[in-house]
């Protein structure tokens, strides 16, 4: 396995994780399940898990770009910078459903059962894979004469 192939493994993994982070929340939020908050004036507004799903999309798109750029980058410095950016976006994916916006309190809601754990798991894996990409870039730098 060449160093270039080895560098592409984290890139593909990051791209897949980005798709999971962007797409899964769209189908596992209370708005998608037809549930809304009814205000005192009768108006219906989306619950906070809906906004988490939207924000996850904003994290997923740059993460996908990081994955694609990693796949086509040759320079070790670029790979390292992209790896660090990927790790930061992974942290954001974890923070969205836990601290920044959150999901609904009801333990049986799909956002609580599926969206939150998926975002946290994908975020942790994105951090791990991005840091692995940084390590691979370091190895490539060592091998370059």
């Amino acid at each position: 396995m060449t160093a270039r192939t080895a560098a592409r493994i984290p890139a593909v993994a990051i791209a897949i994780l980005a798709i999971v982070i962007g797409v899964m929340p769209l189908f596992f939020n209370c708005q998608y399940d037809g549930k809304t908050l009814v205000l005192a004036n009768g108006r219906e507004v989306p619950m906070k898990c809906y906004w988490t799903a939207r924000a996850a999309l904003a994290v997923a798109v740059p993460l996908l770009a990081v994955g694609l750029l990693m796949a086509f980058s040759r320079r070790a410095e670029t790979l390292r910078a992209l790896g660090i950016l990927g790790a930061i976006l992974g942290v954001m994916a974890i923070l969205l459903p836990t601290l920044l916006i959150g999901v609904c309190q009801h333990a049986g809601a799909s956002c609580s059962l599926v969206m939150k754990p998926t975002l946290v798991l994908a975020g942790i894996l994105a951090i791990g894979v991005s840091l692995a990409g940084v390590a691979v870039s370091g190895r490539r730098e060592e091998q370059t004469p």
Binding site: A107, G108, L113, K116, P117, L121, I124
Partner: peptide, 13 residues
């Protein structure tokens, strides 16, 4: 461990 911990409620349901 991570998957089981994060998805424990989904497992129960």
């Amino acid at each position: 461990a991570l998957v089981l911990y994060l998805f424990r409620d989904l497992i129960v349901v």
